[in-house]
């Protein structure tokens, strides 16, 4: 058991490094999409300006606060397991998942309202408005959609971590899987920190 513990220690460093390398590829993925956005923004600045005024700043701000708070509860859940407080860790993981769900429900209503107004990819009403608006909303659905998928993935991941914590497979000695899930969750938060001003605030 003691030997196993020691070899685990080396694994912790390795698996954290591996997780970060995966996160770098995620950063490059989103950076590419942001680049696409800014290139088209400079081409269709007038259209992007007026289209972004149609987004609901309120719902964007609420979702920002929800996601930032979920990052806090995620960090607190790791802190709790490090000092052996299993129940507290489970509670914080559960809160993180709940905030993630709130974020997705808000997104559902936001997208729903836009789709009801006839604004969705390839919608006749949107195509009539011209290339600039089509590009803006195409990028809006693409970026917030891929980000939403990441939130959904994070929710599944943390739910699995909750089960593992419940089974004591994640404990105060061995919590690197929870830590890596946390890194993933925080990165999804970092991406939203940029998505929020880019789509909702910059006009």
């Amino acid at each position: 058991m003691k030997e196993g513990h020691n070899s685990h220690k080396h694994d912790f460093e390795g698996s954290k490094l591996g997780m970060w390398m995966f996160l770098f590829t995620e950063l490059l993925l989103f950076a590419g999409l942001f680049l696409l956005y800014s290139a088209f923004r400079s081409k269709y600045s007038q259209e992007f300006h007026s289209a972004s005024a149609e987004l609901d700043r309120m719902i964007g701000t609420v979702n920002t606060l929800v996601l930032l708070t979920s990052s806090l509860t995620m960090a607190l859940s790791i802190n709790a397991i490090k000092s052996g407080r299993k129940q507290a860790s489970l509670l914080f993981q559960c809160l993180t998942v709940s905030f993630g769900l709130v974020f997705l429900v808000n997104k559902y209503f936001e997208w729903g309202a836009k789709i009801n107004h006839g604004i969705y990819p390839n919608a006749p009403e949107l195509l009539q408005r011209g290339k600039g608006d089509t590009m803006y909303y195409g990028l809006y659905y693409l970026l917030t959609g891929i980000h939403g998928l990441h939130v959904f993935g994070g929710i599944i991941l943390i739910t699995i971590m909750m089960i593992l914590t419940l089974k004591n497979s994640i404990n105060r000695e061995d919590y690197v899987r929870l830590e890596n899930s946390g890194l993933y969750w925080h990165l999804v938060d970092v991406v939203w920190v940029y998505l929020f001003p880019v789509f909702y605030l910059i006009r």
């Binding site: 806090l72 995620m74 960090a75 970092v190 920190v193 940029y194 001003p197 910059i202 006009r203």
Partner: peptide, 28 residues
């Protein structure tokens, strides 16, 4: 963003976002 700073508005937004991202990366 509510103050409509024009061109500087975009720059300020991205700068503030970068400070927020740095805080998340450094501490969380």
């Amino acid at each position: 963003a509510g103050m409509n700073l024009g061109k500087y508005g975009a720059l300020t937004s991205v700068l503030i976002a970068s400070v927020k991202a740095s805080l998340i990366l450094l501490f969380f």
